[in-house]
Nucleic acid binder design. Structure first.
Lengths: 203, 203
DNA sequence: TGCTCGTTCGGATTCAACTCGGATAATCAG
DNA sequence: CTGATTATCCGAGTTGAATCCGAACGAGCA
């Protein structure tokens, strides 16, 4: 059990298991999954699951990690472009990319993200937060006049955490009270207002 | 099964079950609970659980509802006082009350709240959001010059959702990067900056 | 071909949710 | 007060899902 895949076909099996787990998490949530479901979706026998994974939780862990690393892979390449933009434009661009990512594959990732906030999983989210924090930091480096802002780390903390949660929740609403475009406008406006106001006061 | 309690002692039993479920959720999360645990903590036999609850999920539901209604009972009475305060003061007062509430009973509610973000439970949260929305609305009524602000519902949506999540997450951190006081300052500052900037532009 | 070892499988085992039938306690009619 | 009736409580036993395990399969190699 929990052995390393050594041949090509077994690597494919592991991948199929992770993919099947992601799909199952998306449709039923991590606690409602059965091992049989995963095995069936992956097209293998139940016993085979336990060749590569200690138990069901290990499978869910692997799926969560896949989810997080795919998200980080979305954010990282955007940084060089975003840091050159105006705050509102940068946020708009980031949020639209994020939305498109979440909506891919019939909302596979969005439906996983809905379950990612149970705080057990927050540990795995930290790479996502780090990536966004890096974006924040690099943005500041490219706009040195912003370094005067008070409470930068705390603002980033509020903005990143609150922002992720709000976007995922908004995209999950059956009857959103506002469009995604309105949300991006407000996201930009709130941060830009804070920045303008504080720069004004400081300078 | 799922009968109505008719005698005093059975009401106490139901209450003990809900309380035990809250404690169990707080310590292990809703999916890891076993029926035996709940029964044992409540000081009753396993069978008794099923006298008043359809199944384990019904018990967890009841506990969630208790959590939500206790939270609403915290917010509602604060509204009349908060609407008379300055934005920063109001937010500070609200956040400190909220923190104290979450930290009561050895963080019972905080530890439950950590699990409340798995989106299954978001349905039950809506009364909390409604209560905060009412606070928002009543605040605007008492400060009519604010009604000029653009995108009020969306700002409220972002602020309430992001705010709740960020506070719960902050209080759950082992090594918070900032104090709770700093967080409340930033919360107040961000909203006040937005308001100031927009009122300035509009008037 | 026959051997070996990585891989796959599904029946056997374990464990938790839930049921059932009867014991015990409260309530009430006479 | 007593027996009948109803409410409550219980925990051994049933059921089904998670996990384990030993046999079967097949690719590579002598």
């Amino acid at each position: 059990m929990a052995r390393k895949p050594k041949q090509q076909r077994s690597k494919a099996t592991v991948d199929a298991i992770v993919q099947a787990a992601l799909i199952s998490i998306a449709s039923h949530g991590p606690s409602a999954i059965t091992a049989r479901q995963i095995a069936e979706k992956a097209g293998i026998g139940v016993g085979s699951l336990y060749e590569y994974f200690e138990d069901k939780d290990a499978i869910i862990d692997a799926a969560s990690k896949r989810f997080v690393s795919d998200t980080v892979d979305l954010i990282k390449p955007l940084i060089p472009e975003l840091v050159r933009l105006d705050i509102r434009e940068a946020i708009e661009k980031l949020l639209f990319s994020f939305r498109d990512f979440l909506e891919e594959n019939n909302q596979l990732y969005l439906r996983c993200a809905r379950h990612a906030f149970s705080m057990d999983m927050v540990i795995y989210q930290s790479p996502i937060n780090s990536a966004l924090m890096e974006l924040f930091t690099q943005y500041l480096m490219h706009h040195p006049q912003l370094l005067k802002l008070p409470n930068i780390p705390t603002v980033a903390y509020f903005y990143i955490n609150g922002g992720i949660f709000t976007v995922v929740r908004h995209l999950s609403e059956d009857n959103p009270i506002q469009s995604f475009e309105e949300l991006t406008t407000v996201f930009g406006d709130i941060l830009a207002s804070y920045v303008d106001k504080k720069v004004e006061l400081a300078g």
